[in-house]
């Protein structure tokens, strides 16, 4: 049990995923919700790389992790643009109080 194998990495990644889910559900500030999304993506990435190491898949698993990192960068840029627009509109970024789409 103490010897590190595949399931140790999977347990760490599922803890990270749950923490990210908790942040997405409970946080008020939109940027903190984004941090939760980043935690979830990192958990998925640990799974990709762990299965690439302990399975016999060649380089495909690590490449998928690379694609996830690229998508996370694009997602963060778009999401922050939307958050800045939200701030212009409401003068705060609390997503539980942002309840109208148009004035």
């Amino acid at each position: 049990m103490l010897h590190v194998g595949l399931h140790h990495f999977l347990v760490v990644s599922s803890i990270l995923f749950s923490l990210g889910l908790y942040a997405i559900v409970t946080r008020k500030n939109a940027i903190l919700v984004l941090m939760g999304v980043e935690l979830v993506l990192n958990a998925a990435n640990i799974n990709f790389v762990a299965f690439a190491r302990y399975g016999d898949f060649g380089a495909s698993g690590q490449l998928n992790a690379l694609f996830v990192i690229v998508l996370a960068a694009a997602e963060a840029a778009i999401a922050l643009a939307i958050v800045i627009n939200l701030y212009k509109h409401f003068s705060h970024v609390n997503i539980d109080e942002a309840d109208n789409l148009k004035e």
């Binding site: 940027i31 984004l34 996370a72 960068a73 963060a76 922050l80 958050v83 701030y87």
Partner: peptide, 17 residues
């Protein structure tokens, strides 16, 4: 990417909002 890019972007977001 994460530390040098996304985290800096998030901090910019915090400062701007």
């Amino acid at each position: 990417v994460y530390v040098g890019g996304i985290l800096i972007l998030l901090l910019f977001g915090v400062m701007l909002t």
